[in-house]
Design a protein around this nucleic acid. Structure first.
Lengths: 143, 143
DNA sequence: ATAGGGCTTCCCATCATGGGAAGGTCAAGG
DNA sequence: CCTTGACCTTCCCATGATGGGAAGCCCTAT
């Protein structure tokens, strides 16, 4: 399999496959006489693993850890779960942060006429005008 | 006010103040004879506006739009609200995406023994082993 | 006079990905 | 046999927002 077919089969772009090789996430592919990379089912399997880990939001560093655990037949599943739960916590922290933004913005947008007049509580909030609307962003709306 | 004081007063790092000037987000500060940037209350106000917009997750590009609307006294509040609602939609899309990851991961982590044995549904999912656990990541858990 | 702290510009790094140029290789069709 | 097009290779650059740090200038206090 050439890199294009491996890309097709794994869902990872050829650009990224080369990059993963360069940073040592996957081991260097064998080469044909014409210096083309060649891939077999095993390599594609690894690439799919990476693809799936990325789609679950794991960083490349975390993905590398998971990949090593996967290939370590004597791993303890606790180690895997630890990586996963840390990642869950991180995702939830970011979700909460963004949800706070959404709450604030929705409140402001609701208070905004959205008409032809220039008065706008959204801008007032951004400008630091402490109207009834704009409280601290991360805080829940409820008083 | 020197840049350090303006940074203190606005909560924007000196590094970022210079960067915002470089990319044209804020207009170039006046300079003293010794080539130091000088800031007044107005400039600090602008920087605080930027800081607040960033803390609500607006990109620098969106922030620039909002900044222009803020300074345009004949703006229509509808334009502001449009920017805000588009941003809300984007945030909510990203939240939903991450929540999907969390749901999948929590399910997998729950099915994982997390003990000394190597068997691990999390790795099975990443490896594409279609166990009872690992369905498509963005899907809700409910059957 | 010297030390320290602030300012300046300039370059580099992050993280993961894509774009594109310049050039080699291969297969099919004229 | 030669061309065309679709691959492949490496190398450089860009993104977005931020930080780190070096080299050098300026001012103030000791």
């Amino acid at each position: 399999m050439n890199i294009g077919e491996a890309s097709e089969a794994s869902g990872v772009s050829a650009k990224m496959i080369r990059y993963y090789e360069e940073i040592g996430l996957v081991r260097p592919a064998a080469r044909t006489g014409n210096n083309y990379r060649i891939y077999g089912e095993d390599e594609v399997h690894v690439l799919r693993f990476v693809k799936r880990a990325r789609s679950l939001g794991f960083s490349l560093e975390e993905t590398e850890t998971l990949l090593k655990l996967w290939q370590d037949k004597s791993r303890e599943s606790a180690a895997v779960r630890q990586v996963a739960t840390a990642h869950i916590a991180d995702l939830e922290r970011r979700i909460a942060e963004m949800q706070g933004m959404v709450n604030t913005l929705k409140h402001l947008a609701q208070c905004c006429g959205g008409d032809h007049r220039p008065d706008c509580p959204i801008l007032d909030d951004l400008a630091g005008v402490s109207s009834a609307a704009g409280e601290s962003s991360a805080e829940p709306i409820a008083p």
